[in-house]
Amino acid sequence: MTKFLSFLLMGLVKVLAHMFYRGQPNWLSKEQESSLKDVRLVVFLNHTSLFEPLFIRFAPWSFVWLIAHKVIVPGADVTLDRPLAGTLLKTLLPGVIPITRKADESWEHFLSLVNTDVITAILPEGRMKRRNGLDKDGKPMSVRGGVADILARLDNGKMLFLYSGGLHHIQCPGEKLPRLFKTLTANLQIVDIQAYKQTVNQRSEVNFKAKVMADMNARLDAFVP
C-alpha cells in the first residue's frame, strides 16, 4: 500500500510538472529509455533544491513505477526530521533511509541494503548548492565518496546519470514555494556499471574511491547543462 501511494504521488508530481514546467531531457548516450529497466544506480549531479522531484517529468511511466517500488536513497536525518519536508519526502520515497553526515553505522546500514534487486539513488555531493555556487557553510561543492561505496557493491546492471541544469530559477534553498512556468533542463546518460568500474580503475594508481570522486567531479564540470 505504501509503495502504491508513492507511485500515485510521483504520478501526481509528474502530471503537475508537465502542466507547469517546460523542458525535454537531452540524452548523451546511445542507450536511452529502453534501457531504464536495467538501471540499478541513479546518480543525480548538481543538487540545488528540494524541488528536484520535478525532474520526474522526464521519466517514462514504467520507470516511475520501478522507482516507487524498488528505490532506496540515503536522506539526511536533519531533513527527514523536518515536519513538512521530511514527511513529504518519506511519503513520496518510502525507500528513503535516514543517515547522518558521518561515516558511521547509519551509512553502513544503508550500504547493507544495496544490491541488484533494488534501485539505489544518490545525490553524491551530499549537500545543496546555494546561489553563490557554494554549500551552506561557504565551502566549494564537490562529490563525496559515498557513491564509490555503492559502486563497490554492484557488479552488473546500468547506471543512470542525471545532470541537472539547476533549479535556483524555480526554488532556492530557504525559499518555500516554487516559481511556475519555468524550464527544466537536464542531460541524461546511461552507462554499464561493470564497464564504468573497469574504465575508472585503469585511469591512475590512486584508490578506487578517489578515482570515482575525480570522475564524478569531472562529469559535473563537463556534462551539467
Rank of each mutant, 00 (worst) to 15 (best):
T2K: 14
F4Q: 14
F4R: 12
F4D: 11
L5G: 04
L5E: 10
S6W: 01
F7G: 08
F7Q: 11
G11R: 00
L12G: 08
V13S: 03
F20H: 01
F20N: 02
Y21V: 04
Y21L: 05
G23V: 06
Q24N: 14
Q24M: 06
L28H: 04
K30M: 13
K30N: 15
E31N: 14
E33Y: 02
S35C: 03
K37A: 11
D38I: 09
D38V: 09
V39D: 02
V39E: 01
V39C: 04
R40A: 07
V43H: 00
V43I: 10
V43G: 00
L45S: 05
N46E: 01
T48Y: 00
T48R: 00
S49L: 08
S49C: 06
F51M: 14
E52L: 02
P53A: 09
L54S: 02
L54W: 02
I56C: 06
F58P: 02
W61M: 04
S62C: 02
F63D: 00
F63K: 02
V64R: 04
L66T: 05
I67W: 01
A68G: 03
H69P: 05
H69A: 00
I72P: 06
P74N: 06
A76M: 07
D81M: 07
L84A: 05
A85W: 10
A85P: 09
T87E: 10
L88D: 03
K90Q: 13
L93P: 04
K102G: 05
A103Q: 13
A103Y: 04
E105C: 12
E108Q: 15
S112W: 03
S112A: 12
L113K: 11
D117L: 13
I119T: 04
L123G: 15
P124D: 08
R127N: 12
M128S: 12
R130M: 14
R130F: 13
G133Y: 01
G133E: 07
D137E: 15
M141I: 12
S142I: 00
V143P: 01
R144F: 01
G146A: 05
D149P: 10
D149F: 07
I150L: 10
L151C: 05
A152R: 12
S164N: 13
H169E: 15
H169Q: 12
I170M: 04
I170C: 07
Q171H: 08
Q171C: 15
P173C: 08
E175G: 07
K176S: 14
P178E: 05
P178L: 10
R179V: 10
R179F: 09
A186C: 14
L188V: 11
Q189M: 14
Q189N: 10
I193V: 09
I193Q: 03
Q194D: 15
Q198D: 14
T199M: 12
T199A: 14
N201R: 14
Q202D: 13
S204L: 06
E205H: 15
V206G: 08
N207P: 14
F208K: 06
K209F: 04
A210H: 13
K211L: 09
V212P: 06
V212R: 02
M213N: 09
A214T: 13
D215E: 15
M216K: 00
D221V: 12
A222T: 09
